[in-house]
Nucleic acid binder design. Sequence first.
DNA 1: TAACAATCGGATTGCCCTATCCGTTTTTGG
DNA 2: CCAAAAACGGATAGGGCAATCCGATTGTTA
Lengths: 232, 232
Amino acid sequence: MNPGAQPPDNPATQPLRSDAERNRGRIIAAGRTVFGRDGLNASMASVAREAGVGIATILRHFPAKEDLVAAVFLDRMEAYADAVAVALDDPDPWNGFTGYIEAACAMQAADYGFADVLTMTFPTAKALEKRRNEAYEAMVELINRAKATGRLREDFDPSDLVLIHMANAGVVNACGDAAPDAWRRVVALMIQSLEAPARGPLPASPEHDSLYKAMLRASPAGVTSPEPRKSS
Amino acid sequence: MNPGAQPPDNPATQPLRSDAERNRGRIIAAGRTVFGRDGLNASMASVAREAGVGIATILRHFPAKEDLVAAVFLDRMEAYADAVAVALDDPDPWNGFTGYIEAACAMQAADYGFADVLTMTFPTAKALEKRRNEAYEAMVELINRAKATGRLREDFDPSDLVLIHMANAGVVNACGDAAPDAWRRVVALMIQSLEAPARGPLPASPEHDSLYKAMLRASPAGVTSPEPRKSS
DNA sequence: TAACAATCGGATTGCCCTATCCGTTTTTGG
DNA sequence: CCAAAAACGGATAGGGCAATCCGATTGTTA
């Protein structure tokens, strides 16, 4: 899909040779397929096979695996950001808020790679992180509106969203294709716990810095860390 | 701790030579330390280093990594089962139930290896699975009592406990040492959502078979699969 | 269409893993 | 105290991975 695949911000770079451009598109499409199916731990070789190119070709376009991951998931991250925009348009902020959480978690369930991406951060992938931050800021606004209506508990913190994604990633990763809808039940429970009035106090949220460090924890080396998925 | 480490069921097996017996204990202790700190993906070599023995010595006592994992976590699993017994003793079943969930999740947070063990199953590790099943059955009783008091929502299913552990493992694994208490907040939310009256219906539980398959998914090959923890 | 540069892709390097092999050391029992 | 048996542990096999190298190929431009 999307074979013409323009690198969305490739400004001053001189135009690629036509075959190079074509391969770049194929590689990203292959990455989408393979990472979506097998998670971020899928090997570069498997992506190369799916794309029908050599390993070296991938690594010429994307010097490190992390670069490929960033390129592949940029448009997923945009869809993620769009989902917040949709939620903000909902006349009922609580409805928008819960719908957003469900949609975002569904995205994790539908794409094992993205499930991991949402719980990691890639400081070098500027475009990706820019989108994430946009989504986060819109989310803060959505949260405030939902609190204003009195339906969302007052002690909900935006960082809780990250925790929800971590929890959901845990369920999605552990269940894999064996119980592909199990996450829905967990997310439904989580959402019910967020509705005001709160049934009790909560332990304090983690420091924002701590959570950032946690999201950083995984990335560096093999890019990744996520569960080896048995599927492939 | 527990250096004398008697293999709890080593019946007809002829007695080991004294040094072998000693090493066996050292290896299990080292496994406890290393798996607890680095998760199940810690290498056999790192366990050997910690134990002060050669790699071969470990693999003679435990032919496959899975065997070592089973031996190391048997007593954690017993502590886990004990926690249900304690919960059953609580005169207030709801209190026992919530306390149990907190305790069990705390065990996951305190031992990264155990966090993974609780979301996997090891069919060949009889003693381990026996304990798990005992705990599960006691848990069913606890759940029924808690429902009978009217404090636990009627549609709670024992398998939800597995899902909670998967979610908690996700948080614990993602946060690691960077935000070591973040899981408490998520678990507190989950518990509040379990209190009756339910705030809404839930999607159906996954089939028991599916969940079992999901728990099986990880084990076979490198034993494991869990998150490569960056700590070591 | 020719010749040059850009691009390709398989083989290779280097690292880490589990598990096995085999010469050496330690324990045991007569 | 001295073998024979048991256990040890370093070296090695075998496999997977990301990333690099370099000879072969393909697109481009004149």
